Simulated scan of single mutants.
Amino acid sequence: MAMSDRPDLAAMLFPFVRELMAMERPILEANGLTMWGYSILITLGSEPVRTQAALAEMIGADKTRIIADLDALQEAGMITRDVDPDDRRVRLVAITAKGRRARDRAQAAIQREEERILAPLPAADRRTFLRVAQSLADLTRSS
């Protein structure tokens, strides 16, 4: 099989993703969040209540990995973890108003910076890139 004229996807995307993560870190810190904490709040925004195990699966983390992040978010008043009345072994996780405000502030600031980073691209290319990125994210979640 002949070698391709293009680099592998990871080789192309990694420098860009690394730049995005570096851009996000101070924004998240300014809002009292870690990247994992932000991922949790973003996920809770789409579904108001999840079990800890289901939440970990949704963000692609081991359920034991996110316990410290859940503890920190709960201590900061950004989430609640209540016993499920149907199964006392299960904790239901819900975002609070404070968590929504922190998530929304962080997301707005991150997306402003993303627009700045993508600004050199023609508008049609930006729209296409964002549409394809969303399609790839959806494919990844469904596999």
Rank of each mutant, 00 (worst) to 15 (best):
Met35Thr: 13
Met35Asn: 11
Gly37Lys: 00
Gly37Glu: 02
Ile42Leu: 14
Ile42Thr: 10
Gly45Glu: 08
Ser46Ile: 07
Val49Leu: 10
Val49Gly: 04
Arg50Val: 02
Arg50Glu: 05
Ala53His: 04
Ala53Val: 11
Ala54Pro: 04
Leu55Met: 08
Ala56Pro: 02
Glu57Trp: 05
Glu57Thr: 11
Gly60Phe: 01
Ala61Asp: 13
Ala61His: 14
Ala61Lys: 11
Lys63Tyr: 11
Thr64Arg: 14
Thr64His: 15
Arg65Ser: 14
Ile66Pro: 05
Ile67His: 06
Ile67Ser: 14
Ile67Tyr: 04
Ala68Leu: 12
Asp69Thr: 08
Asp69Ser: 08
Leu70Ala: 05
Leu73Arg: 03
Gln74Asp: 12
Gln74Pro: 04
Gln74Thr: 08
Glu75Ala: 15
Glu75Gly: 12
Glu75Met: 10
Ala76Ser: 10
Gly77Gln: 02
Met78Lys: 09
Met78Arg: 12
Ile79Asp: 01
Ile79Val: 14
Thr80Gln: 11
Arg81Gln: 12
Arg81Asn: 12
Asp82Lys: 13
Val83Met: 07
Val83Glu: 14
Asp86Asn: 15
Asp87His: 05
Asp87Glu: 07
Arg88Ser: 10
Arg89Thr: 11
Arg91Ser: 08
Arg91Ala: 12
Val93Gln: 10
Val93Asn: 02
Ile95Lys: 00
Ile95Phe: 01
Ala97Asn: 05
Ala97Val: 03
Lys98Pro: 04
Gly99Met: 00
Arg100Glu: 14
Ala102Phe: 00
Arg103Pro: 00
Asp104Arg: 03
Arg105Pro: 01
Ala108Ile: 08
Ile110Asn: 13
Ile110Val: 15
Gln111Met: 13
Arg112Ile: 06
Arg112Trp: 05
Glu113Ser: 14
Arg116Cys: 03
Ile117Thr: 12
Leu118Gln: 03
Leu118Ile: 05
Ala119Asp: 02
Pro120Gln: 04
Leu121Gln: 04
Leu121Ile: 08
Ala124Ser: 13
Thr128Gly: 08
Arg131Val: 06
Gln134Ala: 15
Gln134Ile: 04
Ser135Asp: 06
Ser135Val: 09
Ser135Thr: 06
Ala137Ser: 12
Ala137Leu: 12
Asp138Phe: 04
Leu139Asn: 09
Leu139Phe: 14
Arg141Ala: 15
